[in-house]
């Protein structure tokens, strides 16, 4: 089970209606290389799960997709990632509209120390998406409804977002992200800090969001990947080993490393 030099990804890493396509992406943290020549398409309105053992680079890859890695000084990304025909690593590209288009939800719920309303209104406000107060109220309400949180918080919109439970906080963060009306949502282990009931709610939500958004989700839980995603990509030590439909990956994986992982021989 040794690492294969310059491994060519097994399965079907490419698709016809790609929203995002990564080509030969390498990531270095200082001297250390974290991602090796990853090429992968993410299709329109699909949920793709990125799985693999800890430290395999799946979160790092996810953070490349909206250039969140820019905030880390020593991180260098090469290769290209194309969103709707334009390379997002083009020096002329501004990360602000990019991140407004490709939103992100993080592992640990991170509501701002503001009210629930202000948390959701934050994105529309900075981007100038609402033309009036009524407009903004509507965006906030719709976003909270889509995130399945409206019923729980509609009477306390002006109490602090940090006062919600963990699961509610994470749904608030999702509402905050969809308030900007992005096209792609990146989720970095969004349920790892949550209990099973909260997790189930988020998974349900992801399924609903698929209609409108393209979603890439990093997860530790293979059950979760199986439940929410249509395609699954398996990462191992910075390499993309295999990409296939979720059914195929979990029933008849092509690569022995994938098989070893999903059968629980390591991970």
């Amino acid at each position: 089970m040794s690492i294969i030099e310059n491994h060519k990804t097994d399965g079907k890493p490419f698709c016809d209606s790609a929203k995002l396509s990564a080509r030969d992406v390498c990531v270095h943290y200082g001297e250390k290389q974290a991602i090796f020549d990853v090429s992968l398409d993410i299709g329109k309105n699909e949920v793709i799960a990125l799985i693999g053992p800890s430290g395999c680079g799946k979160s790092t890859f996810l953070r490349c997709l909206n250039r969140m890695n820019d905030t880390i000084d020593i991180c260098k990304v090469t290769g290209e990632i194309v969103l709707d025909g334009g390379n997002i690593y083009d020096p002329k590209v501004d990360v602000v509209p990019l991140r407004a288009t490709v939103g992100m939800v993080f592992q640990k719920p991170n509501p701002f120390p503001k009210t629930i309303y202000d948390n959701v209104a934050y994105g529309p406000r900075i981007h100038g998406l609402a033309t009036s107060r009524v407009d903004l109220d509507e965006i906030v309400e719709k976003s909270l409804q889509r995130a399945g949180l409206w019923a729980e918080v509609k009477d306390r919109l002006h109490s602090p977002g940090t006062g919600l439970s963990g699961g509610q906080q994470q749904r608030l963060c999702i509402a905050r992200t969809i308030a900007v009306d992005p096209e792609v949502i990146l989720m970095d282990e969004p349920c790892s800090a949550l209990d099973p009931i909260a997790t189930a709610k988020i998974e349900e939500l992801i399924d609903e969001l698929r209609e409108k958004y393209t979603i890439a989700i990093v997860t530790h839980s293979m059950q979760q990947a199986a439940r929410v995603s249509q395609r699954t990509a398996y990462f191992h030590l910075g390499q993309l080993i295999e990409v296939n439909s979720t059914d195929k990956v979990f029933t008849t994986p092509e690569h022995q490393l994938t098989e070893a992982y999903i059968t629980g021989r390591f991970g």
């Binding site: 990019l98 992100m104 701002f112 120390p113 934050y122 905050r176 992200t177 900007v180």
Partner: peptide, 27 residues
């Protein structure tokens, strides 16, 4: 101020100064 708050703001597409003024300073 935890990095996760800054990440949350950057993830929504806020600029650095927006993040500092509207998230970091209030926090």
């Amino acid at each position: 101020v935890p990095q996760s708050l800054r990440d949350g703001s950057y993830g929504l597409g806020a600029t650095k100064s927006e993040t500092v003024r509207q998230v970091v300073i209030p926090a």
